[in-house]
């Protein structure tokens, strides 16, 4: 009996000490998970999720402080990808954070623009070029469609233009094979 108790006790002490030591000594800082989440997020940097950009939102998700359904530009597809990555259940997009809209780019009505630079300061990706008192232009290729430039504009000269499907952007659709009977 004593033998058994000794073996158990010795094992417990060694194991416990090793684990306790390792837990403090080899604590991993930084989180590769954040990078993975950030790669799924659309990088619109729109802040609709309630965080100041995609990376902070990714960090919040990784810590479990945010739900995965707070990103309207990522849409349902993005939520599905996040759910797969994190092994969580899919949730429909939370309405309080916005709705999924067709992909758009901002467009500045050059007649109305007064060159106040407010939108330039608001743009999270520096996609607006222009100078004070000069007309501004959106660099359409770099615009993420975040709409952050809309509220600061004093003359409401910015509008969102949905990206239309034109020939260069056209995609082949998934072929439909009718195997099942339509009920």
């Amino acid at each position: 009996m004593l033998e058994a108790i000794l073996v158990m006790a010795f094992g417990a002490v060694v194991l416990g000490a090793a684990l306790g030591y390792a837990a403090v000594r080899f604590r991993v800082e930084g989180d590769p998970l954040v990078e993975k989440i950030d790669a799924i997020l659309p990088q619109t940097q729109c802040g609709q999720c309630g965080f100041p950009g995609c990376k902070p939102y990714a960090q919040a998700i990784a810590k479990g402080e945010a739900e995965i359904n707070q990103c309207p530009p990522g849409g349902e597809e993005g939520i599905h990808k996040l759910a797969d990555l994190l092994g969580r259940e899919f949730k429909p997009l939370s309405a309080e954070h916005g709705i999924e809209k067709p992909k758009s780019v901002a467009f500045i009505d050059e007649q109305t623009c007064i060159g106040c630079t407010l939108c330039i300061q608001a743009c999270p990706v520096d996609a607006i070029s222009g100078a004070a008192k000069q007309m501004h232009t959106i660099i359409a290729d770099e615009c993420t469609g975040c709409e952050l430039c809309l509220p600061p504009c004093p003359v409401d000269c910015i509008s969102m233009v949905p990206i239309a499907e034109d020939l260069p952007h056209w995609k082949w659709k998934h072929p439909v094979i009718m195997l099942k009977e339509v009920p």
């Binding site: 417990a12 684990l19 306790g20 837990a23």
Partner: peptide, 12 residues
């Protein structure tokens, strides 16, 4: 039970 030894303790 400290977090780091919870599994050994539970298994025990």
């Amino acid at each position: 039970v400290p977090h780091e030894i919870r599994i050994p303790v539970f298994v025990l």
